[in-house]
């Protein structure tokens, strides 16, 4: 294929861009794990926590879901720099976690509330404690039901991780920008970055769909 000089340069830079994969994936996976833990706690607080806990959970979810991710990113970044001594990298992971936790809490809440009250009653009638009911009866069902929504959210976090760009972290998009500046071929470069993200979200969604099917039980 006869590539002219500049386009050839861009294609030769693909390995360089792909080095950003590590950061993108690390940030995404860590944020998803922390976000899931926090989100689940918030959801349990909301559904079973009673007055105060429930209100805290609602408040958290409302506020975070009203803030653009960029505001949270900068907020934690400056907070980190000024007070907490966080690296930009940590700030990104925290910001994505805090952000996705709010959405995940809504996903888990919806799933928990979709399990019929009869399940809880039947478990209590067997003599289980409420704690046992939640962890051995409700959550195993609710978490299965949450998977499709959760995988949607996972794809969102993956795509949102590109906003780590604003804090100057060398993830996929930032590396793309360097290449684009060097080669003066932004259209080609950003299209390649787009293709990489597309492949990532595709693989992620397929993978989670596979998990969903593996874990599915007849309903």
């Amino acid at each position: 294929m006869g590539l002219n000089g500049k386009a050839g340069e861009v294609f030769k830079s693909i390995p360089y861009i792909l080095q950003g994969l590590e950061v993108t994936l690390k940030v995404t996976i860590l944020a998803l794990i922390i976000g899931a833990a926090l989100g689940l706690i918030l959801a349990l607080m909301r559904v079973y926590g009673g007055g105060f806990c429930s209100r805290i959970s609602v408040f958290y979810s409302r506020i975070i879901r009203s803030l653009p991710l960029i505001v949270i990113l900068f907020g934690l970044y400056y907070l980190g720099a000024d007070i907490l001594d966080l690296s930009a990298y940590t700030a990104v992971i925290l910001a994505l976690s805090v952000h996705t936790a709010a959405y995940q809490s809504e996903i888990f809440r919806g799933a928990i509330q979709s399990i019929s009250i009869g399940q809880m009653e039947a478990a209590l009638a067997l003599g289980m404690s409420k704690f046992q009911c939640i962890f051995s009866i409700i959550l195993p069902q609710a978490l299965r039901r949450a998977i499709p929504y959760w995988s949607n959210e996972a794809a969102i976090v993956l795509k949102d991780s590109s906003l780590a760009y604003v804090l100057g972290i060398a993830e996929l998009l930032r590396r793309g920008e360097y290449v684009s500046a060097r080669t003066t071929m932004p259209l080609l470069t950003y299209t390649i970055v787009g293709v990489i993200y597309f492949i990532l979200t595709f693989v992620l969604s397929r993978g989670l769909f596979f998990v969903e099917r593996k874990l599915s039980i007849p309903e």
Binding site: K159, L173, Y197
Partner: peptide
């Protein structure tokens, strides 16, 4: 699926920085 599979920032950069190439 293409739009939903890629980050909005990338779409923005393609339109604002990339289209001038054309």
């Amino acid at each position: 699926e293409t739009i939903r599979g890629t980050p909005m920032v990338v779409q923005l950069f393609i339109i604002y920085f990339g289209l001038p190439d054309l």
